[in-house]
Amino acid sequence: MELLIQTIINGLLIGGIYITISAGFTLCFGVLHVIDFAVGEWVMLGAFITFIISTSTHIDPFLLLPLIFVMFFIAGYLLQPTLQRVITKNKSNALLMALAFTFGISVLFKGAALTIWGFNERNLVTILSGKSISLLGINIPSLRLGTFVFAIIITIVFLWFLQKTRFGLAVRAAAERQDVAGLMGIDSNMINKVVYAIYTGLTACSGALIGAIFSINTEMGVRYTIFAFFVVVAGGLGSIEGAIVAGILLGLLNSFISVYIGGQYVFLVLFLFLYLILLAKPKGLLGKGW
């Protein structure tokens, strides 16, 4: 019984981070119609940059989150026009071009990281590392709780921006019809740049959080690319609410599979679940996707 509760809590706490990754990834797909193959590499880069800054300045990784967001926001903002040109140059194959381009980006990022930082594992140490809270016999690692709280805060700020601000309204309008949004005075090129920038910023922040929980290495990215795909497809393409539900589900599945079946079966069972979800609910768990 205690193991069960422990597993559920671990799953929920980890799920929070998956939500942060998938919220940005989903928005990116919803607005730009780009499936970013490099999502996991943004996670990896976020973790590494956080590690480097944190070890050289001795500032706690949690406090670095705003800086990481800004840095990767700028990176995404500068990269997006190139991506945009690749997609619009060959309109009939926009989706495929985006996949090829972002796949190239992911190889580039991973290769560069491998060259610069090598294979060694690194650990991101925060003020919460190694501590834990005991609650009714259940052991909750402070670090996981902390990252969960940060992930939820980031996601709430993100949703607030999308739902309550004038710019967020423009983003949601452009997500549905860029041409009509243009008629309303919304510059879709600008929206696209900002959306991609928010996505890279959010993803890098979740990389910092992931790096605090697990170890960091240059090969870590692909795992999160697969997770992001799982969440976005299971939640329904383009549905942020669905991504939140699927993110929690992913955390729980991960935790349960690792404890009750074995860590090496995570992907196998995960994709069995994805298969079943797609059979039963092709538009995603909430039925709100495409």
Binding site: R166, L169, R172, A173, E176, R177, V180, M184
Partner: peptide, 26 residues
Amino acid sequence: MAHVPEGRGIFTRLTVLENLLVGAFK
């Protein structure tokens, strides 16, 4: 000048009020 496009082009996933406010974006 404002253009009401063919097929109306409303934002179906936004509320009616939000659609109107998008019009006032600028």
